[in-house]
């Protein structure tokens, strides 16, 4: 057991080691995350991509320290600023991790002024007086390019458009000077033109403020335009990880390959992936993708494939990728 009082020195903004989370529901145990290992290097954007049910939201909750009560004691470590923030009794890094939620329409209380809602966060977690907070918030509104930042302080959420609301929420995520931003598909609810502006803003903020970001998405286009590194999740495990460009150009895990071949940009013929993501209460033994995998071998049914290092700073959790090569050619 390491003592949490001595921070470990690391050049990563966030390191997740072998994280496992289970949820109890109606007497069943749902295996949501299992052996998640990933790193967000300082000053860069790391993407987590996967389909519904892959555990993206639970991963975010674990990082933010808001796992539901029915979660069993999680296994593994989440190292932030040198401390393991996973244990329930660990000091939570309030304000040091900013969160940008998915839906700008649902994430603000309609009956309070948007500015007051953000000032409330600052009152709880940021040093300084209310007057100082207001000055800082107007600056932040300017940084996220809200029109007329002074007036924005006094407006209600409905007086902003969807894109502007997402800017407000980005300002809220930044209000306590975080070192890390965690974003949950912040552009899904927006038009492509607005999405483009928001992605540009996030990239600019990361660069200008030296932020690190963990960006969860299911959209490979967004991933390609924003993230430096990526981890592909399937059924609660990392299938593949590495530099985004390399993973998208030469996907290696059978799941990544099949998923990318579903993308309208790339697909020769839209085929989909046979079968469905398994329910978390009935994860298959061995490799969790094996029931849907075209090159599954007998050992895939029993052995959990380890995340193996791969050339180019990558890692792949499949020992049979060469067979996929042959399968693709056939």
């Amino acid at each position: 057991m390491r003592s949490s009082s001595e921070p470990e020195v690391t050049d990563a903004a966030l390191t997740i080691e072998d994280l496992a989370v289970q949820l109890r529901s109606r007497g069943e145990v749902a295996d949501i995350l299992d052996g998640i290992t990933l790193t967000v290097p300082r000053g860069s954007v790391t993407g987590v991509v996967g389909e519904s049910g892959c555990g993206k939201s639970t991963l975010l909750r674990a990082i933010l320290g808001i796992l539901p009560g029915r979660a069993t004691t999680p296994r593994g470590r989440i190292l932030f600023e040198g401390r393991d923030i996973l244990p329930a009794r660990a000091a939570k890094p309030h304000g040091r991790i900013g969160f940008v939620p998915q839906d700008p329409y649902l994430s603000l209380n309609p009956v309070f002024r948007a500015g007051d809602q953000i000032l409330e966060i600052m009152r709880r977690h940021a040093p300084g007086t209310r007057a100082e907070h207001r000055v800082k918030l107007v600056e932040l509104f300017r940084a996220v390019q809200l029109p007329d930042p002074e007036a924005a302080l006094h407006k209600y959420p409905h007086q902003f458009s969807g894109g502007q609301r997402q800017r407000l929420l980005i300002a809220a995520a930044l209000c306590c000077d975080p070192a890390l931003i965690v974003a949950d598909e912040p552009t899904t609810a927006l038009d492509v033109t607005t999405q483009r502006e928001i992605l540009g803003l996030l990239r600019e903020l990361v660069r200008a403020r030296g932020l690190s970001m963990l960006f969860v998405t299911h959209d490979f286009g967004v991933l390609a335009s924003l993230c430096d590194e990526v981890s592909v999740l399937y059924a609660g495990r990392v299938a593949e990880s590495g530099p985004t460009r390399a993973v998208l150009d030469t996907p290696t895990h059978p799941y990544t390959r099949m998923l990318l071949s579903c993308h309208p940009d790339r697909a020769v013929e839209l085929l989909g992936i046979p079968g469905a993501v398994p329910p978390a209460t009935a994860q298959p033994a061995g490799c969790r993708f094996h029931p849907r995998c075209p090159v599954a071998q007998p050992d895939c049914r029993s052995e959990v494939p380890p995340l193996l290092p791969w050339p180019g700073g990558r890692a792949v959790a499949c020992p049979h990728t060469a067979r996929m090569e042959a399968h693709a050619l056939a």
Partner: peptide, 22 residues
């Protein structure tokens, strides 16, 4: 502008963005 704004897999540098609100 719409075509330029759509994100693509190849991460190609998109054209000029569309300013202003919808």
């Amino acid at each position: 502008a719409l075509l330029a704004a759509a994100p693509h897999l190849d991460g190609r540098a998109a054209g000029p963005s569309l300013p202003g609100e919808p």
